[in-house]
Simulated assay, not measured.
Amino acid sequence: MWVEDWAPRAACRQDTPDALFVRGAEQNKAKQVCASCPVRTECLAEALDNQIEWGVWGGMTERERRALLRRRPQASWRTVLESARNEHVGAKVTV
């Protein structure tokens, strides 16, 4: 199920915003916060659909997100990610 109001549920909600807007090796620390986040997909879709250029969002750096945007510039990332998650959850249920 897609969470519309995802920010209050984010794993990073207690962190200072500066912790997610870092460079270099510090980005790996920021990405670790995202690893167990329950709304990681929603966060990533927000960043991709709005072409947010800075910071770690949904476990991806700006460089990683730019690579996705180049591959599918016209995509609705919410649709893409929501469909992928639903397929993944459906595959888990049938196993």
Rank of each mutant, 00 (worst) to 15 (best):
M1S: 05
W2T: 02
V3E: 11
V3Y: 06
E4A: 02
D5Q: 01
W6P: 03
A7G: 05
R9P: 05
R9F: 06
A11L: 08
A11D: 11
Q14A: 13
Q14W: 09
Q14K: 11
T16G: 11
P17E: 14
D18A: 15
A19W: 13
L20A: 11
L20G: 07
F21D: 11
F21H: 14
F21M: 12
A25M: 07
E26V: 03
E26C: 03
K29P: 02
A30N: 14
K31G: 12
K31W: 13
V33F: 04
V33G: 03
V33K: 05
C34G: 00
A35W: 06
A35Q: 10
S36R: 09
S36L: 07
C37K: 07
R40Y: 03
R40K: 11
C43I: 03
C43W: 01
L44T: 02
A45D: 08
A45K: 11
A45E: 11
E46V: 00
L48H: 06
L48V: 08
L48A: 09
D49R: 04
D49N: 15
N50H: 09
N50W: 01
Q51E: 09
I52K: 11
I52D: 07
I52L: 14
E53Y: 05
E53S: 08
W54R: 07
W54V: 06
G55L: 10
W57P: 09
W57G: 11
W57K: 12
G58T: 05
G59V: 10
T61A: 13
R63C: 05
R63E: 13
E64Q: 15
E64C: 12
E64M: 13
R65C: 10
R66T: 12
A67G: 08
L68Y: 10
R71Q: 13
R71T: 08
R72P: 04
A75H: 03
A75M: 06
A75V: 04
S76C: 14
W77C: 00
R78Y: 01
R78H: 02
L81Q: 01
S83G: 03
S83C: 00
S83Q: 01
R85G: 02
N86S: 15
E87I: 10
V89L: 15
V89H: 14
G90S: 13
A91Y: 03
K92P: 03
K92T: 08
V93R: 07
V93H: 04
V93Q: 04
V93Y: 01
V93K: 06
V93A: 07
V93C: 01
T94N: 00
T94F: 00
V95H: 07
